[in-house]
Design a protein around this nucleic acid. Structure first.
Lengths: 321, 321
DNA sequence: ATAATTTATGAAACCGGTCCCAGGTCAAGT
DNA sequence: ACTTGACCTGGGACCGGTTTCATAAATTAT
């Protein structure tokens, strides 16, 4: 019991026990609203807890219970609208379930991802949600035994990992086919990371293959994450030898950059299809795919606290503009 | 020591001590890279830790150390661009300092804020950052003794609270005076919460008073948080009996809504001054105040882990468009 | 009246670490 | 030879809870 200026600042369960003339076991029972405590003792203990303004120590309980009621959310960066929406879903669901959500930025660094996986081993989190990853699925799976691990992509076949993901393939194919019906013969593509580990990249290539055939290097711009990157992409396609009729972008803000480049050059803006249904596509009035990322976050959270090793598919909507 | 299919899954410091023939104290010294351990013992212990793939339990260390290296960030909702930028700053700074950042949504509910303050008492966090609040400063101050509390507004006079805030007053006055030089005789204002607890609301009123005189009800629209709210505000001012020459908005996305209403009605858009320098003001080309919210978040974090009861002022920039 | 439950309580182990302190070795200083 | 101080080591208290288990009283069932 630590005092400061006469007022009690910190108390523990032993103080309460001593002052109430009971044992810590009994106090613990009162704290946890368990049966088998005499009414008078319960009242007395509650009164003393009230009086000393006692609050049980969260960390001690976590240690004893072997769980922290905390979920770690692994993401490259927090300020990107894609992740912001997913986080929003996770945080909302987490709040309702009484869980704490901790943000774990990686900047796509595998070493840092490993660090968080080690923290999972150290019981710092009950589960990890990978909204994006650089490590292999094998690596993630290897840590599965230390806690639930949820990834936000289709892990395919028989994985031990839980997964919440959007139906990218279906929505991409739908969007691209719609573009064909609009008379767009050639379609440019803008991607973020051009590697096999990015689910978005992989699926975009597959969907493109199915609808437009092989994706050539000239029709592809990679490394786009922000509006300014999109602007660069716009410049690339504007100056291209064989211009494309429309561009399928990996995000609305990037799409806005593409659009804006043409506007700034006083050229007719090339039709763009974006993703995420952000304000930018609404303002510039181009089509987009809404992946319902809040729902994705909620699903990921449910999987994180559930023990069921399952998959959840979130349907996307194509918004024609 | 818990095994699963032959492989060791969980070990603790006692296992390491037993297997290495040393005491727990010595193992602890090795874990923490302390002096006074014989080279051969150190090597042996390290080898065994390696072999069993031992990771110290985070929660146990936290309990013993009396700190969690976790900062709670209190905010109304996570998906709003204002808070997204502040979070980004906090998370970045937290990562560099080896701290965990937990998001605590309140939806402006005082009861929920209280709940988080109680958690601070329960040692769940080392400090709390209030990016926004509904509780009074007195209330926050009352919990100050349980941990550092940082608020993101100017708390004025002699408060025990640490504070990181932007120079709203200066930037608002600057922006409004600039508007006057542009010939805008009457200025509408859009606010989020029209109560005295919102720093933004309070300062906007004061700045308006200083430049334009008394803020009348007819020149004010409140309750705006999103683009759609801004759209409503646009409708309000478009249909007003005494139209305003320009509108000072509490956010770029809201400003975009205002702007867009006029566009949709085929009316010449009314000049808007936004805040936060988001993509929307860039796309629609209206002036805005950049509060450098990432820097605000970083400052807030520094105050959260520092014991110095200080204030940090972040300068804003007015971006004329 | 006796056996079987249910209720009530506290001692003590446990969760998995940190750290103070006592005790011992050994080389340098006087 | 004797003090001094740096180096090593382990026992055990401590952080603040939860939970098992033994014990006993009060009910209920037979």
């Amino acid at each position: 019991m630590i005092k400061e200026g006469g007022a009690v600042v910190v108390t523990n369960i032993h103080d309460i026990a001593r002052l109430s003339g009971c044992s810590v076991s009994t106090v613990s029972r009162v704290i946890n609203h368990q049966k088998y405590v005499a009414d008078d003792k319960r009242a007395k203990i509650e009164a003393i807890m009230q009086q000393l303004d006692y609050v049980p120590n969260r960390v001690a309980r976590d240690l004893s219970n072997g769980q922290t009621k905390t979920i770690g959310v692994v993401l490259p960066y927090a300020n990107h609208p894609y992740f912001a929406r997913v986080i929003d879903g996770i945080v909302g669901a987490g709040f309702s379930a009484g869980y704490k959500i901790t943000l774990l930025p990686t900047n796509y660094d595998m070493t840092i991802e490993r660090h968080y996986l080690e923290q999972l081993r150290g019981k710092a989190y009950d589960a990890l949600i990978f909204t994006s990853r650089s490590s292999s699925l094998d690596t993630l799976e290897r840590y599965r035994k230390y806690g639930q691990i949820v990834c936000c992509e289709d892990p395919g076949d028989e994985r031990q990992l839980a997964a919440a993901f959007t139906d990218r393939m279906a929505s991409y194919v739908y969007a691209l086919k719609w573009a064909q019906t609009q008379g767009y013969q050639t379609m440019g593509v803008v991607l973020s990371r051009n590697n096999v580990i990015s689910a978005s990249t992989r699926v975009t290539r597959r969907a493109y293959q199915e609808v437009y055939g092989k994706l050539t290097d000239t029709n592809l711009f990679t490394g786009a994450v922000t509006y300014d990157d999109g602007y660069q992409a716009g410049a690339y396609f504007a100056k291209a030898e064989h211009p494309v009729d429309a561009i399928f972008s990996n995000g609305d803000d990037i799409g806005a950059g593409i659009h804006q480049y043409f506007v700034d050059q006083h050229q007719p803006p090339i039709p763009v299809i974006g993703q995420e249904n952000l304000l930018s596509s609404r303002l510039l009035h181009f089509s987009t795919i809404d992946h319902h990322l809040e729902a994705l976050g909620q699903a990921a959270f449910r999987l994180a606290i559930g023990t069921s090793r399952t998959h959840e598919l979130i349907k996307s909507d194509f918004i024609k503009r």
